[in-house]
Design a protein around this nucleic acid. Structure first.
Lengths: 155, 155
DNA sequence: TGGGAATACATGGGAATATATGGGCTTTTA
DNA sequence: TAAAAGCCCATATATTCCCATGTATTCCCA
């Protein structure tokens, strides 16, 4: 499972280390890379294992091949996803398109989300958390959950 | 699986490189080429593996011979399909007819769609993508795969 | 339990390889 | 016989491989 938060930075060649614990989870699933795509909901990059995106693909594929809906889903999900392989040091190269979506310049946060993780520009994540907390004020249960996340800051 | 998008260009001889990752997927299936035909939903060129077009063909066969759709599919897909072999550098030559259908002059986008991919004139794709994302969002609620994936969280 | 040694990890950069593209030459074909 | 297609090699750029280094973490033993 992807848990905890890590901050790493782009090098001059545009590479970034994927946190070792995230890599080892993927490696246990038999993968030496990760699927990345822009989030639909916010300015982060979403990341997941290959089999997860394959499930999405087969769900799309079960639609009639001539149905227009099929194109819409495939275009908004599969066309935007890239399979990034780890180099021998466990790094990936994020495309300029993904970096732009997330407004990442140098530093980025790897935020574990269980079966997926997200990559955030650090200050954007702070803002996101702040607004999430506001919304959570309506709901104590989710407020607790947010506090839990806060405790992991800086790790 | 075909995922991600790549932009390549026609050379003076009318050749274009098929993205290496797309080629390698086809090569793993045992093919050294790709089937192309004009999409009838939009102005792109559809591309898939040989065995997929065979499945489509048998699906068409199973339609009632008097059904209107049958002729439509048979003529617009099978009759228009061409099997394009890769040259030793992984390039194909798209027919003038296909290029005209997609309004491609020099640059083109290879857009992964899972079991198939599409070839688009870049600005035409941008327009299509914008509407695809809107329509996919409207239909998001009906996406069974999302629920399915959510249930797996916490594993 | 303290502290030095060993290991793991993130980062840096030169060298080798892969990929997209260009173009000459031969072969096929219409 | 001209045009198209295939075959081969060249090249610029991008990507990957491999090794090095500094730092943080873990291990192990006195």
């Amino acid at each position: 499972m992807f848990i905890s938060t890590y901050e790493n930075k782009l090098d001059k060649k545009g590479r970034v280390s994927v946190p070792a614990s995230f890599r080892s989870y993927l490696s246990n699933l038999g993968y030496n890379g990760v699927i990345c795509y822009p989030s639909f909901n916010n300015s982060s990059i979403e990341a997941c294992s290959q089999d997860r995106i394959e499930k999405i693909s087969s769900a799309i594929d079960s639609l009639n091949p001539f149905e227009e809906k099929r194109d819409y889903f495939a275009t908004s999900i599969l066309a935007e996803s890239t399979n990034l392989q780890f180099d021998s040091e466990g790094r990936i190269s994020l495309s300029p398109k993904l970096l732009k979506h997330a407004k990442i310049k140098n530093n980025m946060l790897f935020v574990g989300q269980g079966q997926t993780f997200q990559i955030w520009e650090p200050t954007a994540f702070e803002k996101f958390k702040a607004s999430a907390i506001k919304k959570a004020n309506l709901n104590r249960a989710s407020l607790k959950w947010q506090k839990h996340l806060n405790n992991q800051e800086g790790k």
